[in-house]
Design a protein around this nucleic acid. Sequence first.
DNA 1: TTAGATTGATACCGTTTGAATATTGATGAC
DNA 2: GTCATCAATATTCAAACGGTATCAATCTAA
Lengths: 320, 320
Amino acid sequence: MQLTQIEIRRLRYFVAVAEQRSFRAAALHLHISQPPLTRQIQQLEAVLEVTLFERLPRGVELTEAGRVFYVEARNILDLTQQAVDRVRLAGEGRLGRLDVGTFGSAVLSTVPTIMLAFRRGYPRVEITLHNMRRDEQLKALRERRLTVGFNRFFEDEPGLTWEVVKREKLMLAVHEDHPLARTESVSLKALAGEQFIAFPHANPGSPGFSERARAILAEFNVEPAGILEVDDVTSAASLVSGGFGLSLVTESSAVLQLPGVVYRRFEESGEFRFDLAMIYRSDDDSSLLRAFIEAVRSIRGEHGWVRAGGAADTRPLSTN
Amino acid sequence: MQLTQIEIRRLRYFVAVAEQRSFRAAALHLHISQPPLTRQIQQLEAVLEVTLFERLPRGVELTEAGRVFYVEARNILDLTQQAVDRVRLAGEGRLGRLDVGTFGSAVLSTVPTIMLAFRRGYPRVEITLHNMRRDEQLKALRERRLTVGFNRFFEDEPGLTWEVVKREKLMLAVHEDHPLARTESVSLKALAGEQFIAFPHANPGSPGFSERARAILAEFNVEPAGILEVDDVTSAASLVSGGFGLSLVTESSAVLQLPGVVYRRFEESGEFRFDLAMIYRSDDDSSLLRAFIEAVRSIRGEHGWVRAGGAADTRPLSTN
DNA sequence: TTAGATTGATACCGTTTGAATATTGATGAC
DNA sequence: GTCATCAATATTCAAACGGTATCAATCTAA
């Protein structure tokens, strides 16, 4: 039988049942009665040709296929709502909306600086910041949930274009009472035997700050006494403030002025760059993104965010 | 008025009109007549509270808001198709995640062999290996945190089904300078008075490798001079390599080729089997698990992992 | 063990929604 | 001015959807 197509309503019903793990509870939540819900889910299963729920004596549970579909359905519902929001903004004559992906240390000063400056020229653009990891940003860009992402990219991504926004040096966050805080700059080799606070490894196949920092330590044969892992640079600074150890951070993290925490340059730091980059869809030729990129380039120039460079492997500042 | 929600159908209609720049042409393309198309677009415009098309004497043209919505709508339709494709793949067991419990010596060669082979047929299944003890595996299986576990099971567990993957003989890990290393095979009785490296007792009520090995020694009246306990087979092999004693291990541990460590069969070894088994929920009838079980059976056959057997108390290779 | 409660599935019915046909209105081509 | 083209409107009919009543299976409590 040529059953009806996939419809948003069915997706809403499915997501409700999946989240409530119960037809009855979901029906209450949806303000409909339970029998039609059962039927709609059955039709959905018929169209998809898979079983989405395992019916248990008490409630239901998602099958493996159901779990896969849940992720997709959630995403579609979110995008639908986003589409409505965007088209209404556009209808009101506003320029549009810009979804920006950021991460830990970028939101501390670099991204806010950019946003403030961009807002001056485009006051009617609605900007939303989304804190997400690099892999989440890439996924969101591909699904058009993000317009542009900020992160540390070291490898090319098909379909996406990236461009260095700021060249940052490696710095040491250390407690002011620590012996290493006594001088203006520190040698990497002096870090041997210290307690480190580090960030967890990113997903494999896509090296991030953490991997590069550890590689540098290994290159200089610095063996830490121990490594404490934390989720973000703010937590790391808190632990440094509490005297739990020292941490490798980037320049822009130095705006975090927690009690007792001081930042020191490395004598060797000229050799290491931790580029902050922005990334966007190569096929996105919207005037809004073009304007944003232009604004970033202009801000980058004003603040001299890229003059540090020098290494031969330097990526071109702009690619297209 | 609370008009009908956004529906996929409307998006399809909208995209068709936007691409054809004509209601008539779009209606033909959609295999419907023109009037309902007009009405659906009107409803869509009412819900969105924007005008999507500029009606011209000859055909229509997208407004600025319409262009914004077109990008969104295209994307949602693409993702919907992708969702259908993916959930169908998942229904066939070709997409999803598989959490696999393993332990010390199983991860050395057996489990990797299985994973590599399974991956060839099911490249889009995400496999995660979790190193955990037998009791942890059982608990995780009951809580559905694991799909399948690999371990040495000697007793039935309610609600779970297990199946022998590989029959392994007991072997002796010994330093090449040790007198017992001089012959190809060793008698169990010759172990009396030796220094042993053993694994800790498992939790009570669920005997594992360690208990069986000690029981065999007791059966042959072999009294060790001392027992050094280590956590896993890799540590045991390291100690053997260092000349701290000898250790009872299974065949698959022999892939650990540490300096000075050699492996010897036992003259009596035919009598003792240390079956490596996989265990899973009896009520899990997901196609992913079925596919995995089939893959393991096929690999088991190819490699002849079960031909050794022979004892009367041999458990059937397959239970269901 | 039995009685009641809970939960999903089924049957049936009325209302809503969507699509088809016929028609109208507006605009441009000749 | 007449015809052709295209979208909008009116009306009718069928399909889809949701509601009530009810059933079957299972779990809980006395």
